[in-house]
Design a protein around this nucleic acid. Structure first.
Lengths: 303, 303
DNA sequence: TAATTCCTGTACAAAACTTGTACAAATGCT
DNA sequence: AGCATTTGTACAAGTTTTGTACAGGAATTA
């Protein structure tokens, strides 16, 4: 639904080039199975939208899995069925992604990610693939030479992927409004994004401020947006004293609850509590439970 | 032969030379689709303005993406009817977005952005809305209180939007492979992303490494990926000496061209040249031309 | 004045698309 | 294994799109 008006109109030859599917085949699919019925010009030329192209890419993934083309139409709907949730699959995915990262090959990385996402819901992919992958890479990056670049490469990729998902949601939530940001000095938004996605899925409204956010700025934001809570995340603290002072000010001047997540929450558990803020557990589920107990989501309709 | 009128108007032959589009073809476009209707002298000779030339360049980009000329015409026609391509519109958009940002209202921000993107191609929106908006905000952030949060909010939003677009592209480019990264200390990827998008649209392959990239890591990446060029961007230099040393090492150890963009390219123009790297102009189009003259894209079609 | 450039309109040819039929290799079933 | 179905591709004949060429005349430039 993004830019249908002008951008999404490719002729069949271009689509063929993009997807690698022969034009004749595309027509055959349409004729035989009614898959992908593009717009037509007044003279009958097919004009494929971006959505159509995406659909073809998805079909290609299915084909790669060995699913017959005739059954792809059905399996597109039923693909969320319990695929044999073998532990093996996730290890396979992980290894393939690591390989792609070490080659800086974004095409491969992208196709693996898409493959996983097309077969499993985002929650599963996050828990079974992304989080383990991150810790795995964390270790690798401490030992292997030339790995800072790998980290950057992968971070940008994941951030963009997750960010896209975050901004793509079309539901306007009605739950409590949370401000989400990284602590000063923290430049890795990955965890924060995962949290934001999960929180949004549960009905919270979110204002995402990203990395390296000065705490002194937050009262302004809170006041202007009339939010209901602040969630901060970080793994390191540059200046302990400053951190305590600023956090104290924040927690006391603002009348709304302040939560702290990430490794900081573990290492400075006592200090955080002393300021009146609430430390969060390291797992996503526990985090959402903690926040939910303070700021419950009013379920209006739960069919 | 570079004739140019007193008013900055070009005759058709000159336009043809600049853009590479045959004069006959230009006339055919105008006749058949009403594309680009230039001024006329009293005797009927076509006089193209700079805006017209820009428009042609834009058309060429769309054409390069495989969109049929008739479709390009249709979309441009549509948008020129709905909104008289007035400067006003962009000011309007800008003001609305600034308002939304100051309210931290992402829904509104998102809908404005989508509205613009559905009416205009990404290149136009970038040049007319996003870039001016960013400089406008840059000034505002230096003066207004509590505006760092605004910066974060908008940066995250734009980064996610553009990042999504970047990673959503489906064409596997075959052009030269560029490594794109921000200089150490530079945490604003915005400009880099805009560049990456534009470069990709023109056929380059891209490896996006994002913000704050240590230069010493790059040789590894270059070697492992066998890229054809490095594009670095930044607005500040933390340590001038270190910068010069590292850049020198990079430009000399790697056998591929190194480009530097952003404000750094202006402020350290001489120093950069001394190291063997190439400074880039501040505008996107000039940047792409500079890179294109060193690393030309092999157009497979559209001879 | 002569040479060049540009104008309009018609025409043409290559490229790209369309539909429909046909065929051979791959796949599945008995 | 043997037979039937599936599925990608090929070929043919006709249409549309699109870049370019050409002709005759007018304007510009050197």
């Amino acid at each position: 639904m993004e830019q249908q008006d002008i951008n999404g109109l490719y002729p069949i030859g271009t689509v063929s080039e993009i997807t690698g599917v022969n034009a004749v085949t595309l027509r055959a699919w349409e004729r035989r199975y009614g898959l992908i019925q593009p717009e037509r010009t007044p003279k009958g030329h097919r004009m494929y939208s971006q959505t159509d192209v995406d659909k073809i890419q998805l079909i290609l993934v299915q084909l790669g899995q060995g699913i017959a083309i005739s059954r792809v139409a059905e399996s597109m709907d039923l693909r969320e069925q319990s695929h044999d949730s073998n532990e093996d699959i996730w290890v396979q995915y992980r290894l393939r992604m690591i390989e792609a990262i070490s080659q800086f090959d974004e095409n491969v990385l992208d196709s693996i990610y898409n493959e996983a996402m097309s077969l499993y819901p985002v929650d599963i992919v996050t828990r079974r693939l992304l989080t383990p992958l991150l810790t795995h890479l964390g270790e690798r990056w401490q030992t292997t030479e030339g790995s800072v670049a790998e980290e950057h490469f992968f971070s940008v990729f994941m951030r963009n992927k997750l960010g896209a998902r975050f901004h793509h949601r079309n539901i306007r939530n009605t739950g409590p409004c949370l401000i989400a940001a990284c602590l000063p000095g923290e430049h890795h938004e990955f965890g924060l994004l995962l949290f934001a996605l999960a929180a949004h899925a549960r009905g919270y409204r979110l204002i995402l401020l990203g990395a390296d956010m000065p705490l002194s700025e937050l009262p302004h934001v809170i006041q202007r947006t009339q939010s209901d809570g602040v969630v901060l995340s970080g793994s390191i603290v540059l200046d302990t004293d400053l951190f305590k002072t600023e956090l104290n000010t924040l927690a006391h001047t603002s009348s709304i609850p302040v939560f702290i997540g990430g490794h900081v929450a573990e290492n400075y558990h006592a200090e955080i509590k002393a300021t009146g803020a609430t430390p969060l557990p390291t797992d996503l589920f526990g985090t959402l439970q903690t926040i939910g107990s303070v700021l419950p989501i009013t379920r209006n309709k739960n069919t």
